[in-house]
Simulated assay, not measured.
Amino acid sequence: MEEPCAPGTHEAALPVHLVVRVPEGLVRLGTGSVARAATELRPGETEHVLTSCTLRLRSPLRKADLDRVRPLLPRPDLPSLEWLAHVNDDRATALEQFVTGWYPAVPEAPEPPSMRPPALDLPEELRQFHRLARQRPRAMGVQNRILAASARLTDPLGEMLVLGEENQGGFYWSVPWTLEGAEADPVVWFREYDEPPIAEQEPLSGFLLQFSLYEAAMGADFLALPRRLTARQADRITAGLLPVPLRPFWPGAPTRFYVAPGLVLHISDEGDDDGDGEGDGARFSAWAGALHRSALAPLADAPVEWTRFDG
């Protein structure tokens, strides 16, 4: 139901009263506005039909009302955290269990022989990652990416093997490399193109696990995105999760990972307060991604302000 249109008011700017029917009756959710809508002209029809509509609420929605109109039904097949026990004793197993648990397998596309590089050119840790990604290509990254084995790029001096890059090309990761190949579990170097390289705190085995966790969260269908956090808020948002026992990822903003079944949260330390006048010491950014909205339940009661919460 829409309010009458006042003179000079565009119809799209009017509030929409939101009501949901449940078995017990009607639940009023307040007012909102149309953020995005799509229509479709179906065969044999003369008018477009509304196919989807995203509404933005104008007032906070009580959790009790949300639970009534959209009950939180658990998904029974969330992946386990068995991989977490292997992080510090068998990272190859940890990586395999995480990647195969998070991403469903797809048919493997055969690689033309001409595109297949010699196996000894790459460290074993990277070859394992490529093997996993053949049936789970999204593991290669959705925000940033690990380069395909067929790329085999080197840095401008030809001394480093470039293994991954930022989505806009602003930085890349590399490992020491010679014609004989790379050493076992080498140091990973982060480099912005106009800055000196900085060593990642974890070697390649830990880096690939961190990269996988980061990309899993970034590419997830269900997200929880808070505003910038203070140190106290960062502690409270992770209280119900398990920390991944690795040193911080990414020198640009040291990032730690926290997990629950079907959920990955990463928190990045962005340094001192940005001086925006708020005076609250906010310096941490956070991003949580989940395979199902029920997996976000451990974050539902966190005392933070969300810009998006799909749980």
Rank of each mutant, 00 (worst) to 15 (best):
A199R: 02
Y172G: 10
P76V: 07
A12V: 12
P196K: 12
G311V: 04
F249H: 06
G281A: 08
P4L: 07
M160I: 01
D90A: 04
L84P: 03
L61T: 07
G8P: 01
G277L: 10
G240E: 12
V27E: 11
P303W: 03
P196N: 10
P303F: 05
D194M: 15
R68D: 00
P118R: 10
A286N: 07
M160C: 13
L29Y: 04
R70A: 15
D273C: 06
F207D: 00
L26R: 12
L78G: 07
V304T: 07
F171R: 14
R62T: 09
S268R: 15
P203F: 03
P123H: 05
S80G: 14
R42N: 09
G8R: 04
R70D: 15
R62L: 13
G206M: 05
S205E: 05
P117R: 05
A13D: 15
D310M: 01
P176W: 03
H17F: 15
R283F: 08
G141P: 03
P60H: 03
A133V: 06
P123M: 01
E24L: 05
I267K: 05
G311D: 01
L147E: 13
P176Y: 02
G271I: 12
L265R: 02
R36W: 13
E125W: 00
E180K: 08
T154M: 11
G281L: 14
V142W: 14
P197W: 07
G262C: 03
R308G: 15
A105W: 00
Q168S: 14
L29D: 04
D273W: 12
P60D: 02
D121C: 15
G262W: 02
L299T: 03
I146R: 03
E159H: 11
P196M: 12
T54F: 08
Q210G: 03
E11C: 15
R58F: 00
